[in-house]
Amino acid sequence: MPEQTEYAGIAALTICEALLLAISDHDLLPKHEVVGVLRDAAASHENAAGSDSDADMHRTVAALINQIIAGGNSVRRP
């Protein structure tokens, strides 16, 4: 059974993704800036991957963020 922290992580991801979509949909930031936020987040984890004992977690998180970018959701919609 998943731990409470896993549920918190899923909730946080869902909330953040919804916020980024709303920011983009309401033209508060251009879509390329929203994608830039996601790329910065992924890069933070990619750079942290070699620096501590949680390297696998950081690589997995970076891969997940990159999948969101590549997923073609409304953040990437023209």
Rank of each mutant, 00 (worst) to 15 (best):
A63M: 05
V37N: 11
T14D: 06
R77A: 08
A41Q: 06
L13P: 02
G9K: 09
E3N: 09
E33T: 04
G71I: 06
E3G: 11
V35W: 00
I68M: 03
A18D: 04
T60K: 03
L28F: 07
I69C: 00
I68C: 01
E3M: 10
D56F: 05
R59T: 09
H45D: 06
L20D: 08
N73E: 05
G72R: 08
Q4A: 15
E33V: 12
V34S: 11
G9F: 15
A70L: 10
D52E: 09
Q67A: 03
E3R: 15
A41K: 02
L20F: 04
A12P: 06
Q67G: 00
L28N: 08
E6W: 13
L28Y: 05
E17G: 00
L29T: 01
N47V: 02
G9R: 09
P78M: 02
G72Q: 12
L28V: 05
E33L: 15
G50E: 03
Q67M: 01
I15V: 03
D56V: 14
V34L: 05
G9T: 05
G9P: 14
D40K: 13
D25C: 01
L38V: 00
I15M: 08
E3K: 10
A70I: 05
D54G: 05
E33F: 09
A70V: 09
V34D: 03
M57H: 03
I23F: 11
H58N: 01
L19K: 05
R39T: 03
T5F: 15
R59S: 02
H58C: 02
A62W: 01
N47P: 01
G72H: 00
A41L: 04
G50S: 07
N73K: 04
I15Y: 06
A48S: 13
Y7E: 14
V61Q: 06
E46I: 00
G50A: 05
S53E: 15
S53C: 07
G50W: 02
P30E: 07
T14F: 02
I15R: 07
D52S: 11
A48Q: 12
A22D: 04
I15G: 01
A48L: 07
E33W: 04
N73P: 12
G50D: 04
H58D: 10
H58L: 08
A18E: 03
E17H: 06
G9C: 12
S74N: 11
S51K: 13
E6C: 08
I15P: 02
L21V: 14
D56M: 12
S24H: 04
A55T: 08
T14M: 05
A70S: 09
V75E: 07
A43N: 13
E3T: 08
K31R: 15
G72C: 09
E17V: 04
V34H: 04
L28P: 01
T14E: 12
E33H: 02
A49M: 08
A42M: 01
Y7R: 13
P30V: 11
M57V: 14
A49Y: 04
L64D: 11
V61R: 10
Q67E: 09
S24G: 06
A18G: 05
E33Q: 14
R59K: 12
D25E: 07
L38T: 03
K31W: 13
A43V: 06
